[in-house]
């Protein structure tokens, strides 16, 4: 990927993220968050994680943001313009964030892995199909031999081959979450008839 494109996407992600933190109007914040997530999904695509990029858009920029906007409209929240600014919280928040960012920048340069780029660690699709041998599904080896990265197939294979139980636990979690939301948002009946 050209470096310029990476910096553009990083700027979109971080710029809109900054607008989420500083915006006064909740609707502006929600739309900025959606834009930030789209930039993040593009960064995922640049890392050859096509499936993750697509579900990032579908789940976050689609479902989660619609839910946020729906709640904002439902509650009819006014912009908090009149309120006075909470200086100690802002100062401590910015201080902690700057400290954390500095620490991440310092740590990320220290590992051997951090120096790897797409040029020094290229994907080796043909070799991968040879190395996986008979353990892989025929459809995966076929795609690999054709020079394509069967991203969704490989994730699905990993999930169902190694993490079948975890997948079922996640399904149960979603069920419990659904029941919990219904119970939480049920309006309590008044005792009077």
């Amino acid at each position: 990927m050209p470096p310029l494109l990476f910096y553009l996407l990083a700027l979109i992600t971080l710029g809109f993220g900054f607008m989420v933190v500083t915006g006064r109007n909740p609707v502006t914040c929600a739309l900025s968050l959606a834009a930030s997530f789209v930039g993040l999904a593009a960064l995922f695509l640049s890392l050859d994680a096509y499936f993750i990029g697509v579900i990032q858009i579908l789940v976050y920029a689609g479902a989660v943001m619609v839910l946020f906007l729906f709640i904002i409209m439902l509650l009819d929240i006014k912009t908090e313009e009149g309120k006075k600014v909470n200086f100690p919280a802002i100062v401590s928040g910015v201080f902690l964030a700057v400290l954390l960012a500095l620490q991440v920048v310092m740590v990320s340069g220290g590992t051997d892995l951090a120096g790897k780029s797409a040029q020094t660690a290229p994907l080796a699709l043909a070799e991968a199909s040879a190395k996986m041998g008979k353990a892989a599904l025929p459809t995966i080896t076929k795609d690999l031999k054709a020079g394509e990265l069967p991203d969704a197939k490989l994730i699905g294979f990993t999930l169902f081959d190694q993490y079948g139980f975890h997948l079922q636990v996640i399904g149960l979690l979603l069920l419990v979450g659904t029941i919990g939301v219904v119970v939480l948002s049920k309006r309590e009946r008044s005792t009077a008839p």
Binding site: F18, V20, L96, A101, S108, A114, S117
Partner: peptide, 27 residues
């Protein structure tokens, strides 16, 4: 040349932005 370090820095900065928001915002 874009290395893993670049992505980690973006990730860390995004996390720091979120942390600042969680601490500083009141809504």
């Amino acid at each position: 040349m874009i290395t893993l370090g670049h992505y980690l820095v973006v990730s860390g900065m995004l996390f720091a932005l979120g942390l600042a928001g969680v601490i500083a915002r009141r809504n």
